[in-house]
Simulated assay, not measured.
Amino acid sequence: MKWVKKGWVVGIGLVSVLMLGACNQGKTSTSSSETVSTSTTKTKQSSSLEESTTSSNMEQTSSSESSEVTEMSMDFAQIQQGDYSSLQGSWEEVAVSLNRHDGTGNTWIEGQNEQIEISQNQIVDGNMTISGSVLHDGENKNLSFRQADGYLAADSDDGAIIWNVYFYPRGVALADWGEEIPETIDTSKERIVIRTSNNNYIQVFQKSDGAVSNLQTTASQNQMNLSEIKTGDYTSVEGSWTNAQGATLEIANQRIILTDLTGYGEGGTITGLRLDMPDSNGADGQPIVEEGQGGIVSPRYNPELRVVDDAGFVTLNTTYTGALLCVSFLPEGVAGDIQGGDIQQEKIVAIGTQNNATAVPADYVYYRSN
C-alpha cells in the first residue's frame, strides 16, 4: 500500500509538470502574439506619420512653388515674341536724364509725369510704339534683342534717331547709367528705361501699385503735367504767367489767353488744341486767306495745333505766314535752349519763330505770377 501511494504521488507530480509546461507554453504564445500585434501597430503609426510628413512637405513645396509663380516678373522670352502680358500694370515716370548742352553732359532730374501704356501686344510711349520686333516713331525700325547682367535690351537699327529700351526685373540694379542714380529709382521694383539719341534723352518708368500711384498723382496735381497738356488739358498750369517783356498768359477753364504770340503784339486764345487769332481772322471768323511766298495762297495761320515732344518738354505749334507759332511748356529742371532764366521754375515760351522754339532770351520766358 505504501508503494501504491508513492506511485500515485509520483503520477500526480508528472501530470502537474506537464500541465505547468503547457501553461507556460500558452503564456509564451500569448506573449509572442501581443508582441507581434504591438509591433504591427507601431509600424502602422510610423507609416501614417511618414505619410503625413510627406504630405506636409509636398504642401509646403506646392505653396512655395505657387508663391514663386505669383511673384514672377518680366518674361524675357514672351517680350521678345511681342507678348507684353508680364509687363501690364501701372507704370510711372520716376526719373529723367538729359543733356542741357552746357558742357556738363547728362543730368538726372525728377520724372516729368510722362506716361507709358502697355497692352498685351503694344508698348506705347509718347514718341514711339513697339509691336513685336518693330519700333515705330514715324518710320518703322527693326529691333534686335540682347540679354546682359540680368536685364533685357532692345536696340533699334540705324536711322535719324536711335532707340534703346531696357527691361529691368526686380532686384537688378541699373547698369552704366552714371554714378548718382536718383533715389526715386527703386531696385526692388520692375523698371523700363527708354533712351533716344535725340539729346541722349533717358526716361525711367517704374511699375507701381495703386496706392503709390494715387499718392504720386495727388502730389503731382500742382506740377506741370505734360501728358495732360498734350491732350489740350491745361489744369496743371492754370493761373497767371508773365514775362519780363510785360506780356501775360491767363490760363483757366482749359483755355490759354495770350497777349502776344507773334512777337509783334498779336495775341490769341488756345482752347484744347485749337488756336484762334481774331486779328488774323476775316469777317467770317476764319483765318484770312492771303498770297504768300512763291504766289502760294493759303490761310494766314492754321487753327489746328500740332503736338511736338522734345527733350523733357512739349511744344504746341502751327504755321503762320512763313513761320511757326510755338507755345512750349518746360517743367522744373528743364532748360531747353533758353538763353538764361531760372531753370528751377516751371516755364512757358510763346513766340513766332523760324528757328528753335525755345531758343529765346530769358526776357521772353513766362513764369507763374500767382
Rank of each mutant, 00 (worst) to 15 (best):
A160G: 00
G132R: 03
Y168F: 15
E139L: 06
V165N: 08
S144H: 08
D149L: 10
G150I: 09
A153I: 10
H136P: 00
F145N: 03
A148M: 07
S131C: 03
D149P: 00
S156W: 04
G159P: 07
L135K: 04
L135H: 04
I130G: 03
G132S: 04
L143I: 11
D149M: 08
H136R: 06
N142T: 15
A148L: 09
A148Y: 12
A148N: 14
S133D: 15
N142K: 13
F167R: 09
A154R: 08
S144Y: 07
N140Q: 11
E139P: 00
L143M: 11
H136T: 15
N142I: 10
N164E: 14
V134I: 15
I162A: 11
V165L: 10
D158T: 14
Y168P: 02
S156E: 05
H136F: 15
V134W: 03
H136G: 00
V134A: 02
I161L: 11
Y168K: 11
D158I: 10
L143S: 09
A154G: 09
Y166V: 00
G159H: 08
K141H: 11
D149K: 13
D158F: 11
V165W: 05
N164Q: 14
A153Y: 01
Y151K: 13
S144M: 10
A154I: 06
D155L: 12
G138S: 04
V165A: 08
D155M: 11
G159D: 11
S131G: 13
I162R: 11
D149F: 08
I130F: 02
G150V: 11
F167T: 04
D149C: 00
N140W: 01
Y151W: 10
S156D: 09
K141Q: 15
I130A: 03
D137P: 02
A154Y: 04
G150Y: 10
K141W: 01
Q147H: 01
I162W: 08
Y168A: 06
G132L: 03
A148S: 15
D137C: 10
I162L: 13
A154L: 06
D157L: 04
F167L: 06
S133R: 12
S156L: 07
L152H: 06
L152R: 10
L143F: 07
N164R: 15
Y168H: 09
L135W: 04
Y166L: 14
S131D: 05
L135Q: 05
L135G: 02
S131R: 12
Q147Y: 01
D149Q: 14
F167S: 02
W163Q: 06
F145R: 07
S156P: 02
S131L: 00
V165G: 05
F145P: 02
F167N: 04
K141M: 14
L135T: 05
K141N: 08
S131A: 10
S133C: 01
G138A: 08
D137Q: 04
D155E: 14
Y168V: 08
S144I: 13
D149R: 10
K141Y: 03
L135Y: 03
N142G: 12
